[in-house]
Structures are given as C-alpha cells and as structure tokens.
Design a protein around this nucleic acid. Structure first.
Lengths: 195, 195
DNA sequence: ATCATTTTAGAACTTGTATTCTAAAATAGG
DNA sequence: CCTATTTTAGAATACAAGTTCTAAAATGAT
C-alpha cells in the first residue's frame, strides 16, 4: 500500500499543545510549531489540514488525555475533599507549573465566548470541572451548600490558572488553596455531625 | 504656530482599550483600531508611534483611570468589607459585563510573565489589588487571617474576570461572590467580639 | 522486486497587516 | 493675511506568516 507515518501523533499533539499553551494560538507561528513538534510544515498540513486543525486536535488531546484524566482521578465518584484539593495542588506542580498556564484557561481569554475552534474543548472542560466539583461537594458537605461552594471553587480554580502566568508565587497560591480546603473540611465535619 | 490635534486623547485611549479588551493585542488590527478610535492609521502612528505605543498608552490609561479609581473607591483607607464586595460585583456590571473581560487580566494571559509592553500595567495592577485587599482585611478581620484570605480573594477576583469571557452566568458568579463575603462578614463579627 | 500510494521536504506563493511616505488641510502666531 | 508647523488622509511599501505546490523518499502489498 503506502508509506506509514513516521511520527507519533500523541507526542506531536502534546508538543503542539505546549507550544500553544506558551504562545497562544495566534502567536504560535508555523515555524514555531515545526520546531516544537519536529515536523515540517508539509507534514503538519498533510496530517491536520491547517493550523486551526492542529490546534483543534491538540486541544482535544489535551482535554481527553489530560483534563478528563485528572478530573476522573481527583473528582471522580469515589474522590473526597482530600483528592479534590490535590486537583488544585496539581496545577501548581509539573507539568503545569512552568508558567505557561492551562491550554483551556488560556483559550477562554484568547477566543472568548464566540463559537470557534476552541469552543468545544472549553465547554467540555467547564462542564467536566463544574460537575465533578459539584457532585463531590454534594457527597461531602451536602446538597444544600454544594452549589454555592462549587462555583466558588471553580472561580478559585481559574484564578489559580490565570495567575500562574503572572509570576505570582506558587507557594502563596498553594497556601490559599490549603486555607480554602481547611474550611471545607470543617464544613464536612459539621455536615457529618448533623446527620 | 501649528494645527491643534482634533481628537480627545482620553476618548481615543478608552476606545482603543475596548478594542484591545475585545480582541487582544495581537488580533486587534490597525484597521480595527481605526474603526474603534475613529482615527486613521496616520494619526495613530503620529500620536503614539506604533501599535505597541498605542497599547501601552491604552493600558496605562486603563490602569490609572479605571483600576486605580476603583481600588481607591472600593478598597481605600476608609472602605470596609461591604465596599470590597462592591469591587467584585462591579466587574459583573457595566462597563465590564460585556463579556470582553478586563484588559489587565486578559493581558496576563496574552503576554505572560516575560517583560514586555504589558508588564508595567500588569504588575502595577496586581500590586494595587493585592495591597488594597490585604490592608482592608487587616483592618476588618485582623492581621492573623488577612494574608491568607487576601490571596483567596485575589484568586477569586481573577477567576471571575477570566470566566466573564466564557459565557458563565454572571448571576451564578454574583452568588458565589456573595457567599464568600457572607463568610468574611461572619469572620469580622467573630474578630470584633474577640477584641 | 516492483508498484501504487502516502509521507516528507522545502521552495514558492499569496495574503494579511504593520508601517512608512507623500501630499494636502488646518491652525495659531507674527 | 501669511506662513511655519503639525495633523490628517490615504496610497504605497515591506515584511511576516499561513498555505500550496512540486518532487523525492519511503513503505507495504501484490
């Protein structure tokens, strides 16, 4: 038949995702993406159509092979507040602690709310995070307080992701996350006593 | 002597700031900026040097004529928790509730931490917000808890600004802000009783 | 081993966009 | 009322970046 592809699609998408995470979609030039992925432009266009296609594929890879995994691990059906805290802590540790932020959070700012090449990944991620946190909190502190606390945690989450690009001390953010979860642990104790 | 300038510099910088807020620096073309400001490119280049110069001027105008004002009003020396809550609420109301976010918060994502045309405005704003909130909390709930709570509020603040570009319900964010401040009001009561 | 088909490589091209340039219009002072 | 100087206007330019194209290399099936 025909020649087989010589590169690893997952590795290419991970490398492209990092380039987009660092520079944004617009400022990541094809030359930059060639360097990051090790491919030449011909191969990129052959495999992904165009720059937008590469971005879509990289974002989907990021959401399905990274965000989804972490939500499942840290906010899945058998996760508790301790695991959820690790979700927040994990964005302050490698590989996200390089100062380039989160591809989804960055894309919210770059692309906004209008339908576009990032909408699917953004909306899927927002739903995953919100629902994961909300149902975990419902189990842990009860349905009454869960919704309000969930939105506060979602906002905290995106605040951490945004300021992780600003040079703000990771340690200071880590402490703030710790304080928030100390409060939630206390709420859980009160909730368990009431029952 | 010579012909006088026919446009209002402040109005032009406000219009340019809105265009940058909506599209970002890179995606706001000169043609877009001409439309937004009402100037033609010749006047822009004559008055501000280049696109980067216009951005720097617009960002400085934004920080000094908007951020600074709001911090002074809502987190100044005689402000309390009630005023601070209004700072958070105000970013969910006009003119910031148009879904285009905050020029500074957007610039954190677009430019990151590396020195560049947005660094001054970003760093000045981060310092203003952090210090304003921290000293207000020191007065309101005491020095012991102030620092940790301040960082949580700063993260909440940037979370709101980021998600304000995502189509997330403004009302849901408003409720989350309300819940956070209810908790701080309770902390203030406890702190005042202790004294 | 040969061939059909795909990937790879890199040059060529096209388009979009920031910037510069040239000339005309306008204004405040002499 | 001139005139020097600046702003304004818009065309011209230069450059960067995304995309396309052409040809060669590679590979699996027949």
């Amino acid at each position: 038949m025909a020649r087989t592809r010589s590169f690893d699609r997952d590795a290419v998408l991970a490398a492209a995702g990092n380039a987009f995470r660092q520079h944004g979609y617009r400022d990541a030039s094809i030359a930059e993406l060639e360097r990051a992925t090790g491919l030449v432009s011909g191969s990129i266009y052959n495999a992904f159509g165009d720059k937008a296609g590469l971005f879509r594929a990289a974002l989907e890879h990021y959401v399905h092979g990274f965000v989804r995994q972490r939500i499942a691990a840290f906010a899945g059906a058998d996760a508790g507040l301790e695991e959820l805290e690790q979700l927040f802590v994990s964005v302050l540790e490698p590989p996200l602690s390089d100062g380039y932020g989160c591809l989804v959070n960055n894309s919210i700012i770059e692309f906004g709310n209008a339908p576009g090449i990032a909408s699917d990944g953004i909306n899927e991620t927002l739903a995953l995070v919100r629902q994961g946190i909300a149902s975990l909190l419902t189990r842990e502190i009860g349905a009454a307080a869960a919704e309000l606390e969930a939105m506060q945690l979602v906002l905290l989450y995106h605040g951490v992701l945004t300021l992780s690009r600003s040079g703000t001390s990771l340690e200071a953010m880590r402490s703030a996350v710790g304080a928030t979860f100390d409060r939630l642990l206390a709420a859980r104790s009160r909730h368990n006593n009431k029952q």
